[in-house]
Nucleic acid binder design. Structure first.
Length: 576
RNA sequence: CGGGGCGUGGCUCAGCCUGGUUAGAGCGCCUGGUUCGGGACCAGGAGGUCGGUGGUUCAAAUCCACUCGCCCCGACCA
């Protein structure tokens, strides 16, 4: 294609409302334009990149025997009421009414629709297993869209669903997806890690997220550099750093002491001269109406995910100040477990075996010293805390690494949640009724592009892997008014196309600086520069990633470039 | 939903505090010319109901109220 004919609206300055790199660059490079909060138009370059990503996704999904479909984005409310998620999804779901006042919603995911098809059509165990997928637009009314394409309200998702006769079958489907996802992200040129994850409102037992480390990411992952343990922060486990001070020995009774105006853990530490690790942090939470007292070591943070799981998956929220006062007789800052009878007490395992600690006295302005778990109060023990910097790996003892990441894919073992609630049954070999077991698997198409931008961008703009860049090479004549250069550039462009390369000819009547800057900005992996060295029989092959140029004879340029690009693709090829 | 910030030609911004002729700049765009290896130069030109509504005032981009939109932090998040 000829650049002079294309719509690639690049900008010289960063857009004012962008903060993260991928947002700035995708707008500046003319890939996207914003329509509303969390809603973007994908212009020519973005669509080209997405098509390349989608093609890779399709090839790998087809390779595991998944069948592509396309389901509606508009769903009747009844379907979601059946699974119980009409309520669960809350404000995240776009809801609307048709002219007959019937309730509808825009699909945020498709378990319900897929299960409805399955229950309508699958009759016999002989039809299983099945893997169905689609690449389609999803709608989620995010409370806070942000970071350009990283968190949006309308996005393209590859979602697939597996139906199996038994858990062993589900394991197979899950493994197939796991491998296919690894291959997809490798072929897209991403550095990623698969982490253990929490299944959230999807329900189900096992789940992995595919994460790309990036500061712009919204998730936190915990990684062990030694044994490879990897988990989402909300699920990660660790060996806590030891307390900073040893517990005083001896068998004492709790003893109140006045702590006027001392409320936070840090203030208590300052006041007592003892570190935060010597304190018991008491948090009042409400689990679907009933109060729960949660105890943690002073320096630890509660993982609400773990707490919710410990409470059997109940929805939890922090208690309001007046509730705490009513239930415990004191304000936050002076709360503790001693003498508490009117609520469940859950304690984090890091407190087990500790002695003579400090906690609130349930009386404003007072704390207790010499509080020993299991002697002065009883609680049920759970892992409730978030992994903290400095923690060690439970498997190998190495120091854990923590960092932000972008979630590009997520796979779930759903179990029977949807087949049960929506009545999906097939007949077994002995005429018995079998409830199929399901899995669901998602990839965020836009996030693959965002992640690549975040990972590889430099000062000059985006640097995209050949497999997902909108073009593989741009042929740039330096001076349009030089007929030799122009015709050489045209013929290089034609032979690049003939050699099967995805090429672009920058035939714009612009000065060379403008062409170079634009080509760098939009991230095309290679550039053939046709300039004054043409007179001495040379053109340049410029590699965007390394910024290295090599001079070659025009006649050999395309073949050499073709080989380098082939090499790039080989390096992106998964080895397994 | 709580906190903060911002809405002025296509883009990035100034002007607003302290109201006062035809609302500015740089970039981009159009025409002509000179140029051509890292965002050229000269000359001329087009383009803005100052987010919206209401109010105060002789007079509002500027002050007040309401409202809409967007961004950031937090809560939330398959």
């Amino acid at each position: 294609m000829q650049w002079s004919r294309l719509f690639i609206p690049t900008l010289r300055e960063d857009p004012a409302d962008a903060e993260v790199i991928s947002h700035k660059l995708l707008v500046r490079a003319g890939y996207i334009r914003q329509l509303a909060a969390g809603v973007y138009s994908y212009l020519f370059l973005a669509q080209r990149a997405f098509n390349k990503i989608i093609r890779i996704v399709r090839e790998e999904m087809d390779a595991i025997g998944a069948q592509e479909m396309l389901l509606p984005a508009l769903h009747p409310a009844e379907l979601w009421q059946e699974s119980g998620r009409w309520e669960v999804m809350g404000d995240d779901m776009f809801r609307l009414k048709d002219r007959g006042d019937r309730l509808l919603c825009l699909g945020m995911t498709h378990e319900e629709v897929m299960t409805a098809i399955a229950r309508g059509e699958l009759r016999s165990y002989k039809q299983l297993p099945q893997i169905w997928y689609q690449i389609q637009t999803k709608f989620r009314d995010e409370p806070r869209p942000r970071s350009g394409l990283i968190r949006v309200r309308q996005f393209i998702m590859k979602d697939s669903y597996s139906f199996d006769l038994d858990p062993a079958g589900l394991d197979v489907a899950y493994q197939k997806h796991y491998r296919a996802y690894c291959r997809i992200f490798q072929r897209c040129g991403l550095k990623f890690v698969a982490v253990e994850a929490h299944s959230g409102t999807m329900g189900g037992s096992q789940s992995h997220e595919f994460m790309v480390r990036a500061e712009a990411g919204e998730d936190w992952v915990v990684l062990c550099p030694q044994c490879g343990y990897a988990a989402n922060l909300e699920k990660a486990i660790s060996v806590p750093a030891p307390p900073l001070a040893e517990d005083p020995p001896g068998d004492f009774d709790p003893e109140p002491f006045a702590t006027p105006g001392v409320r936070t853990i840090a203030e208590v530490a300052e006041f007592t001269g003892l570190p935060e690790t010597s304190q018991i942090k008491s948090l009042v939470m409400v689990a679907e109406g009933s109060p729960v007292l949660v105890l943690l070591r002073g320096d630890h943070q509660l993982s609400e995910t773990k707490l919710s799981e410990a409470l059997g998956g109940r929805v939890i929220r922090p208690a309001h100040p007046d509730e705490m006062r009513e239930w415990l007789g004191a304000d936050a800052g002076s709360l503790g477990p001693v003498g508490v009878r009117n609520m469940t007490i859950l304690a984090d395992l890091a407190l087990r075996g500790r002695r003579n600690m400090i906690c609130g006295a349930n009386r404003d302005g007072y704390h207790l010293r010499h509080v020993t778990p299991e002697e002065d109060f009883t609680a049920s023990w759970h892992d409730l805390r978030q992994v903290a910097p400095g923690d060690r790996c439970t498997h190998c003892g190495a120091a854990l690494d923590m960092g932000r990441a972008i979630e590009v894919g997520h796979i779930f073992k759903l179990g029977y949640k949807y087949s049960d609630s929506m009545g999906l049954r097939v007949t077994g070999p002995k005429g018995e009724e079998i409830t199929p077991i399901m899995g669901s698997y998602g990839i965020g198409i836009e996030r693959i592009l965002c992640s690549a931008v975040e990972l590889y961008a430099d000062q000059d703009g985006m640097v995209l892997p050949v497999s997902i860049a909108p073009f593989e090479v741009v042929v740039t004549p330096v001076n349009n008014s030089d007929p030799e250069q122009m015709s050489a550039a045209r013929s290089l462009y034609e032979s690049a196309k003939a050699a099967g390369l995805d090429a672009l000819l920058d035939d714009r009547d612009e000065r060379p600086g403008v062409k170079f800057k634009d080509a760098d900005l939009i991230g095309i992996p290679y550039r053939i520069t046709v300039g004054k060295k043409l007179a001495s029989g040379k053109v340049e092959i410029f590699e965007r990633r390394s910024r290295q140029s090599t001079e070659v004879e025009p006649a050999r340029a395309v073949e050499q470039l073709r080989q380098r690009i082939e090499e790039d693709y080989r390096n992106l090829q998964p080895q397994d």
